[in-house]
Every structure is written in C-alpha cells, then in structure tokens.
Design a protein around this nucleic acid. Structure first.
Length: 559
RNA sequence: GCGCCUGUAGCUCAGUUUGGAUAGAGCGCCUCCCUCCUAAGGAGGAAGUCGAAGGUUCAAAUCCUUCCAGGCGCGCCA
C-alpha cells in the first residue's frame, strides 16, 4: 500500500522514491487518514507554502481504486485507503502463506555460525545465561526465517583457574562423593565452598594455582578428576538447554584449543604485523583507541586472545559465510581488539565477523556474583516460575499430571523468555525476583493467552477458515488488526537488520493487544460476516505464532 | 583519567537509526464490566519541564556541543 502511494506521489513531486519513502508517515489518529505526506520539504524547492503545495497535490493526483480519498490538513496530504480491498488482500495473503508469511530469502542459504551461550564449567547456568540463550536462539531463528542455514555453536570454557578452584574444593571436602543433586549444581557448590574457605585460608589460592599447573602438565590424577567433574557440569547444562528449548549443533572446548594459535602469532611476527617487545612478549599496537595488546607471553605461552584467533579461523573450516558471537557487553573491547587484529592479518573472513552484545542483568541489590553464590540460578528460576503457573492452572481446571507439567513449563518459559527479550538488547536490566515475572499485562503469558483465545474461537465456530469471504462492513478494530498484521514483514526485517529481537517482542504484544480489543468489541461466531472474522482470527493466529516462534516461545491452544 | 553504552510517568519499558500534527504501553493506584466465543481479559481515570543547559531548523524525545548521573571496559585473567 505504501509502495502504491509512493508511486502516485512520484508522478507529481520532485523527489525520488527513497526520499518519499522516508517522508511518508502514519497519522496520529485514523480520522486523519491512513498515510500522510508532509509537504514542508517541498516548500523551499517550489517556493510555495507547504499548505498550498498540499492543496495543489490534492487536485493533481488521480486516485486508483485502492485509495478512497485524499484530504489536506494544513501542510499534510492525507491518504485514506480502501479498507475493504486492503483487508481482503492482507488476510488472503496470510492464509495463503501461513507460516511462511513474512519469510524472506535475503540470506539465501548462507551458512552462519552463531556462538552462544559459552558457559564456564565450574558452576551452573544463571540468569545471564538465560538472557544470552534467549537472544542467541531468537537471532538464530530470525536468520533462519530470512533464509540462512544457522549453526549454533557453543564454546565450553572448561579450563582455567576457576575450574581448578572447584576441583580443589572437591578434592579437599568432597570425600569422593557422587552428585546427590543436579550434577552442575553439585560442581557449583564446590566453587562457592572454595571461595568461602579461601577467605580464611589464604593458601588455598596458591594450591588452586598449583593444581592448574598439574593439569597443564597432564598429571593423571588431576586430569581424571577434571574429566569427572566436567562431565557432571556438562551433563547438567545439557538438561537445562533441553528444558529451555535450546539445541546446540556444535561444541568447542577451550581445553582443546587454549594452547593453539601460536603459529598464527609467529606468522604475524614474520610479516611484521606483530612486534617483539623488549621483555620478549609478542605484542600488537592497535593505535590510540585500542592500545597495545599482548598476544604471546614472554614465556611463549598463549593468552585468551591467542586462542580466540585460532578459534575464529577454525570456525571457518565449516565453510561459513558469517560468524557471529553473542556475549555480554563487558566483552565489547575484547572483540573490537580481536576483529581489528584479524583485519590486520588480512584474513579473508575479516569482514564476515560480527559481535552482538547485550546489557547486564542486575538484581535489585546489584551485580550477581557467582563466587559468593548471589546469583539467580537458571534451573531454579525456571522451576519457581513453573510452580507459580501450576498453581494458577490448578485454580482453573483439572488436568492430568503430565499435561499440567508440560503446560506449566511452556507458560513459564514464555514468561521468562519474553521478559528477557522485550527490552532493547543493549540495555542493562534489573531483575527483581518478586516482581519481574508477571503473568498479566505486557508479558509472554498474555501472548499465549491471546493465542489460546483465538484457537478457542475457531474450535467453537462451525465454519472453518477459508480464503473465500465477503466483507460488507469493517469496524475500526478490524481495520486496526488488519493493519497490524500487515506490518509483520517490515518488523521482521527491522529486527533482523538491527540484530535485535526486542522489536519482534514489542510487535507481538501490540498485535495481541489489538486482537484482545477486537474480540471484545466484535463477536465472531454467528456474526453477520462470520466468514471474514473467522478468516481474520485465523490469520492472527498465523502471525502471532510466527512472531512468537521467532522469540523461541511455544504457543498453546488452551490455557 | 580515557573509551563504549544508558538516562522518557512512582516502578519497568516503547518511540531516537530515517526530526513532523495532542509523547505511548505495562505494573502499581482509583472507577466500572463475567445469564455475553476462557476475567492470565476488556472499558475509563489520575500521573510526564522526554537527565540539564546551549545550538541547528518552519519544526527537536529524535540531530550537534558541553555538562551531570549510572553501568561496563581499559591485565603477560578468561
């Protein structure tokens, strides 16, 4: 529709398509029209007042059947579209394309690796990981919706001093016990225990350091312990991923790559891109903004960035077109440095790298500290929310135990994921355990409720949704709903090009809100134009389901 | 100190990329609506110097400058 108006205006206005596109806006109220063209910019070019220009255009433009009328309101030229044609076209298109409505092929089977959530194996996943996974999964789905082949990759940070700490605590206080709870939690308890004990006993820090040394030297007993505890941690993670609805395609392990990348550094040194400092450390100078970075220690061991250089290269053995990293914004500097080095090395994939970062999750009392055990545990929050949902469900109807569990989990995950995705990705957010996960208003539960209501209407109706229907009259809420439905493809593109799922989340809510208003005002079953309203409800279901899918949220037909 | 990000109603956030017609939601608060397709819903009300000050413009929450406040980062840690 917008395209049509652009074409009309192009004939009578000295601007190109893009300029017109940017000028066209939606009036603040529908009484003013469906689209508006402000004439201020033309005022200088044509040396007339904007009001006069608007009036001239009103006379000049010939109306096609899709436009009912145009009107001027001061300097604005307002277009009134033919709502019946528009509604019919939109609803038919959605019923036709179904789950493909809004899909594009702009990524044309491009292979994209997206790295997340990349946890440390010394403690269970926490709320920050849930934000990471929600974003990672949503962006993956957005890419897929635009035609990409996505590889979800996970880098397991399974070595280092933090791992040695939980190992040491287990050695000293674990009595060789097997996990008596979810295994990653069992491991995490020893990490917290280490930090408690080391406050009093300063020697423990040193001992952990020694244990790390032993591990690096390949000490058999140490390796065996490390393997055992890592397995527990990874098993636990796997359970959480599954529950949260995440399936990772590929796993990398820091223990397997941390020593690699030295050749890359030597090669760069030979080419003169890197330099040897007086103290024998190999460095790169990245100028004013990024400064000087060490790439290889004086003793020739690698640092974090050395392994990341190697991993970046390793990833591209998968024939990638793009490689994306999803992390908290505390790593912005690290990735700026990494990408800058890769560019200087002249690697072919230097411009195929992208770092997407998101803001921190805080508790009302401040930052979460896993070392002190003041974190919101991922499994714990999922289960707590699920139990709250279960209570609500029990009030409503009697369900089998199995149905109660699966339905409550779906609703709980909707609440959590929506909460984590609705805020702009780059903003910090405060999570208040008592208030944050609501079931009313602007929430994931509201989306599911709206979907369930729509499903219920279709279940109870005698007529099935069909592409053939007649529109005799359109109520304001029907028009609003159709308009919102028609915006979906635009929102998908915006969300994709901004790498920001929050646009989809906000859209989903607006859509669901209009739908709820619609069915309160407009009865569907046995109404005068039941066939159209049934078709409208069905197209709403498709679009809401599509957008919820992009958020990684399951729909339910009853609640 | 330097760099990046953020600042919109009591609280949580849309809107800022591309400047336009009275700044929008949710929660909380105050009224209403279940003989009516699920009340996890709907209708209405109160609540805002868009962090501050300058500037650009016919027009600024939106662009520019300076300042203030908060977060993160600036390791031969990962």
């Amino acid at each position: 529709m917008k395209q049509l108006i652009i074409k009309l205006l192009k004939k009578s206005v000295p601007l190109d398509e893009k300029e017109i596109y940017n000028l066209i806006e939606i009036p603040p109220s529908t009484e003013l029209g469906d689209y508006a063209f402000p004439c201020f910019v033309l005022s200088k070019k044509l040396k007339k007042s904007p009001t006069q220009i608007a009036q001239d255009l009103e006379q000049k433009i010939e109306l096609p059947k899709e436009i009912e009328k145009i009107e001027t309101k001061g300097p604005y030229l307002n277009f009134f579209t033919n709502k019946k044609i528009f509604a019919e076209k939109t609803v038919k298109e959605i019923l036709d394309k179904k789950e493909n409505y809004g899909k594009t092929n702009i990524l044309n089977k491009k292979r994209i690796m997206i790295e997340f959530p990349s946890p440390n194996t010394n403690k269970p996943l926490h709320l920050g990981h849930l934000r990471n996974m929600s974003i990672g999964e949503s962006i993956s789905r957005l890419m897929e919706f635009n035609g990409a082949k996505v590889i979800r990759a996970n880098l397991n940070n399974d070595r280092g001093i933090h791992i040695s700490k939980s190992m040491l605590a287990y050695q000293k206080f674990g009595k060789n016990k097997k996990p008596n709870k979810k295994p990653d939690h069992f491991v995490g308890d020893f990490y917290v225990l280490f930090n408690e004990k080391s406050k009093k006993n300063k020697r423990l820090e040193k001992e952990a350091q020694e244990l790390l040394q032993k591990w690096e030297n390949g000490d058999k007993k140490t390796i065996a312990l490390w393997k055992k505890m890592n397995k527990w941690a990874l098993e636990g993670f796997e359970e959480t991923y599954k529950k949260f609805g995440i399936k990772l395609d590929k796993n990398y392990y820091e223990s397997e790559i941390y020593k690699k990348g030295k050749e890359i550094v030597y090669e760069g040194l030979k080419k003169g891109i890197f330099k040897k400092r007086k103290d024998n450390a190999i460095i790169i100078n990245l100028g004013k903004e990024l400064g000087e970075k060490v790439l290889l220690r004086a003793d020739e061991t690698s640092v974090y960035i050395t392994q990341d250089l190697y991993l970046a290269k390793l990833k591209f053995k998968n024939n990638l077109d793009y490689s994306i990293y999803i992390t908290g914004n505390e790593q912005d500097y690290h990735f700026a440095v990494l990408f800058s080095i890769i560019k200087k090395l002249g690697w072919g994939f230097a411009d195929k790298l992208k770092h997407i970062s998101y803001g921190m999750v805080f508790l009302p009392e401040g930052k979460m500290k896993s070392r002190e055990g003041t974190v919101v545990d991922a499994d714990d929050i999922i289960e707590r929310v699920r139990l709250l949902v279960e209570q609500e469900l029990k009030k409503r109807e009697k369900l089998s135990k199995k149905e109660l569990e699966s339905r409550s989990l779906k609703i709980a995950l909707a609440a959590i994921k929506y909460f984590l995705l609705k805020t702009d990705i780059k903003k910090n957010m405060i999570f208040n355990p008592k208030e944050s996960i609501n079931f009313e208003g602007d929430t994931g539960v509201y989306l599911q409720y709206s979907y369930a209501r729509a499903s219920s209407i279709l279940r109870k109706a005698k007529i099935k949704p069909k592409k053939k229907f007649k529109i005799t009259e359109l109520k304001p809420k029907e028009i609003e709903l159709v308009k919102k439905l028609s915006e979906f493809p635009e929102i998908v593109l915006k969300s994709y090009s901004d790498f920001n799922p929050s646009h989809i989340a906000n859209y989903s809510y607006q859509l669901a809100k209009i739908f709820n208003e619609f069915y309160h005002k407009c009865p569907v079953i046995n109404s005068k134009q039941e066939d159209f309203r049934i078709a409208l409800v069905q197209s709403f279901r498709f679009v809401l389901k599509n957008s919820m899918k992009l958020l990684g949220i399951d729909v339910i037909n009853e609640m």
